[in-house]
Design a protein around this nucleic acid. Structure first.
Length: 504
RNA sequence: GGGCGCGUAGCUCAAUGGCAGAGCAGCGGCCUUUUAAGCCGUUGGUUGAGAGUUCGAAUCUCUCCGCGCUCACCA
């Protein structure tokens, strides 16, 4: 049972008094006629004609100023804030009732006519009001005041990141800009859907709960189905199911949904995150590259109104074409090491150790892992403007197709923006013999570490043996795209309820 | 998981070994166009939890809990 604070006890007392007076504390219905925005707009249109605008509005009390025989308050609704004006002349003892019984955070409904105060603020002259819902726990912010010119001055705000994330409802209630982030996030997702729908892609849903996991390099969450008496996994990617659909002659498919990875948490990682993947039959990674820059710039244009967006102290420009940089070239420029001169892991490791003795990876890394190390250690942070890195080592890309004439390199790209990976795509491997070989190599390379050991998906190979068209595939972290377009530097700021330790 | 840092009133923060404070919110007054309204008065604390050092601990030490940053992990 909740223990009430002193402030809450005062409000509980008010609830009792209200009930004793016959006031419904949580009535079932409101009957609002106007939002704050509608009321203000209608008044401004009618003002010159001297026409009266009568409205009923509803919202949450965000400020109150009692001045004896009159009172002012601001209520906030989904559209914004509006000032209320109460006067004893009109309301008699109801003004005293308002001052005594209505607290910050309460929801009320107020009816009356719109007017403009001496200081110019469009205000509701209240002729009647009623409580819609009592707030017991005070909202964790004190002052947040709209000026007549529309600017908002904040004198204190809910800032504690833990509280904000744990009690997102309170964060949303007192920090309007947080609501705006999530409105933007919804527009981003809608914009991605619109774009893909317009390009002939079919939105599908594939299993989240899977008997086997695959399609990415990650440890899964494990659960158990009682009736089937078998372990199940939460998916770590959509890839293997979506590509089965290409076997089924669905030529362009995409899914937007949740992935789960049982790994560390950081400013760019949450254990569950929203992924967009699409697969496009008869396309290759270069076509996917073009579609990617079109799609992301389209979303930026739709959501931010421009392909240019502010990110911290940078300005990012998503306008196509994005810079294209071969992975080999990028690594050479930033680390001084040319990976094509080092065909074996031993040779590459030696090159790294002699040139950068202070930044040495594990000695038993594969060549691909060393290249990945070079990328993340030297190159990644330099990639601020949207950049496609392309042509990746085969052994860290087990689902991508090798380049003609270079069996150690695959047709793969990743886009980097603001120093982190935004998306990952390749010409998909559709050769069942090569795929089986890759799975077996993977088993060999990673069997030593049981945590990273991946199961062999026989059904996926069976699907592929029916014949899979050549295709290009794509995956992007929607949370990360949202970070870029909302100028947030932590994934937690774009997740309504980020993963947190259980509260004791 | 490692390293570093933080945790004080509802919120934002002071107090660095010597009486736990301020602003706002709250509560009681005055106040008929305010905009952080103003003025007068006032309540509110297991200083994250526990142990230790000390005459004396918010402050120093240790353990635990939570969060943040960072590193590692992330075919």
């Amino acid at each position: 049972m909740a223990e009430y604070s002193a402030l809450e006890k005062i409000r509980l007392q008010k609830v009792e008094e209200l009930r004793a007076e016959g006031v419904e504390v949580y009535p079932p219905r409101a009957n609002r006629t106007h939002t704050s925005l509608q009321a203000i707009a209608e008044f401004e249109a009618a003002e010159s004609e001297g026409r009266e605008v009568k409205v009923t509005m509803a919202g949450r009390i965000r400020a109150a100023r009692a001045m004896g025989k009159i009172s002012f308050a601001h209520i906030e609704d989904g559209d914004g804030k509006v000032q209320l004006f109460f006067r004893v002349n009109d309301l008699g003892e109801r003004v005293e009732f308002f001052n005594r019984m209505i607290d910050l955070g309460d929801f009320i409904q107020a009816s009356g006519f719109m007017f403009r105060t001496k200081t110019g603020e469009v205000t509701l002259h209240v002729q009647d009001f009623k409580l819609l819902a009592k707030s017991i726990t005070p909202l964790p912010a004190d002052k947040d005041v709209s000026q007549a010119d529309g600017t908002v001055i904040r004198y204190a705000a809910l800032e504690d990141p833990e509280l904000r994330a744990r009690q997102r409802y309170a964060d949303l209630a007192v920090n309007p800009e947080v609501r705006e982030v999530f409105r933007k996030r919804a527009r981003i997702v809608k914009s991605l859907r619109d774009f893909l729908d317009d390009h002939g892609f079919l939105e599908v849903e594939t299993p989240i709960l899977q008997p086997l996991y695959g399609g990415a390099a990650a440890r899964p969450f494990t659960t158990h189905h009682n009736e089937l008496n078998q372990d199940m996994y939460l998916r770590i990617s959509f890839e293997l199911y979506l590509k089965r659909l290409l076997v089924g002659n669905l030529e362009r498919v995409y899914e937007i949904g949740r992935d789960f990875r049982n790994e560390g948490v950081s400013y760019k990682h949450n254990p569950e995150f929203t992924q967009l993947e699409f697969y496009w039959a008869y396309a290759d990674y270069l076509q996917v590259m073009e579609l990617t820059e079109q799609m992301v710039s389209h979303v930026a244009q739709q959501v931010a109104g421009s392909t240019r967006v502010r990110y911290g102290d940078q300005e990012l420009d998503f306008k196509p074409p994005w810079k294209r940089l071969e992975l080999r070239q990028g690594i050479l420029e930033t680390s001084g090491i040319d990976i094509v001169l080092h065909k074996t892991s031993e040779s590459l490791f030696e090159a790294l150790r002699s040139r950068h003795p202070d930044r040495t990876p594990d000695a038993d890394s594969t060549r691909g892992k060393l290249i990945d190390f070079l990328l993340s250690e030297f190159l990644e942070a330099t990639l601020i403007q949207p950049t496609f890195l392309f042509n990746y080592p085969r052994d860290i890309s087990p689902l991508a197709k090798s380049m003609p004439g270079d069996s150690q390199t695959v047709e793969r790209f990743e886009a980097y923006v603001a120093g982190f990976e935004l998306c990952n795509a390749f010409t998909e491997l559709n050769d069942p013999f090569d795929q089986e070989q890759r799975f077996l190599e993977m088993g060999r390379d990673y069997a030593a570490d049981s945590a990273e050991k991946h199961p062999l998906d026989e059904d996926y190979l069976r699907a592929m043996r029916y014949g899979m068209p050549p295709n290009g595939g794509f995956g992007m972290g929607v949370d990360r795209l949202t970070m870029l377009l909302t100028n947030k530097h932590s994934i937690r700021d774009v997740l309504l309820f980020p993963a947190l330790r259980k509260e004791e």
